[in-house]
Write a protein that binds this DNA or RNA. Sequence first.
DNA 1: AACGCGGGGGA
DNA 2: TCCCCAGCGTT
Length: 396
Amino acid sequence: MIEEKWSEESRTYFSTELLSWYERSKRDLPWRRHRDPYYIWISEIMLQQTRVDTVIPYFHRFIERFPTIASLAEAPEEDVLKCWEGLGYYSRARNLQAAARQVMERHGGQVPRDKASVAALKGVGPYTTGAILSIAFDQPEPAVDGNVMRVLSRYFFIEEDIMKTGTRALMEGLAASLIPAGRAADFNQALMELGALVCTPKAPQCLTCPVMAHCSARLEGAELRLPVKSKAKPPRPEHRIAALVEGEGDREGRVLVRRRPDTGLLARMWELPHVLAAAKPSEGADLPDGAAMSRLAGTLAEEGAYVRPEGPFMTAEHIFSHIHWYMRVFRFQEAAALSALAGFAELAVAEPQAAYDEGERAEEYRWITLEDMEELAFPNVFLKILHQYFNDKQQK
DNA sequence: AACGCGGGGGA
DNA sequence: TCCCCAGCGTT
């Protein structure tokens, strides 16, 4: 099949020139400095949907904090999430730690070398399986990510939609057939490196490309048309209102935050209390400030916190791949005299209400200072709001 | 097969 | 500012 569609010469040329280019131009990356399977694994998980430049500082912090698989397996999950804060897709961090525990229990603390065991690790799918086996152990397995699909679709003029499952199988077969004997680690990295540095999505640097001479798309002038990729749906808008509540009395100088439920969006991350501005998520943009604050005050009261509205504080946005949060943040002052004597969390647990509009309850409420933020993992949008707040306060 | 899941960088 | 980048788990 592969031999019929793409000639031996074309494929051999590609692999040879690519490897030679890689040896000249490969970047000096932290996880390339040792061939430690643990480092390779961490880097590959971090690099899923994330650019190299973003990953580098996280990688350094992560291996300093969790230098071995054992240390990662033993750490509190909170610490792992905190180390991942800002990197996004937090299930990657939770799965990574679960997988570290799998490795301790099933594989004596060593990253396994057989395909079935690697693929069985949490958070490790077909791409990462191939990446670990080839880069760490030089096994001739394909590692097909978005870069690889872009390069192959152009060089071999593959017009199948790369968003389709079947296209991936095609690419894996082709990629596997291209690996020169004994060179899986370098070849797979070379393929991704070319996609990242030369064969880029918008403005490919064809004139510096080591395989330009036989690139089918380039020869047809079609490099910008490939890969064919169906459009993802745009994120749906959600209008939300959030409360920044300042504590009173013992809680003077502290702000109320809550921890999200164990599953779903931003699982177990910390945030400011917030609700949809209207019953329909896409509506509520025009909800007047007064009505917004009443709504938040009512919600907080159900959770056991009685508050006085102070006024609008700021707006913020948070864009997920599937949701666009438009968030209006309002300031409140705790009215401690009205608040529960026994403390907030206990009362909140005692009276379950549907205050959490995702249909689940917040796990926990806490009054925090700026320093406490160092222990808790927040999504970026709440980091921005909280830093703005604590910054403003310091100015005064 | 379709959907849920964050955040950053470049034009 | 707008547009683009995408592997894995779950269902």
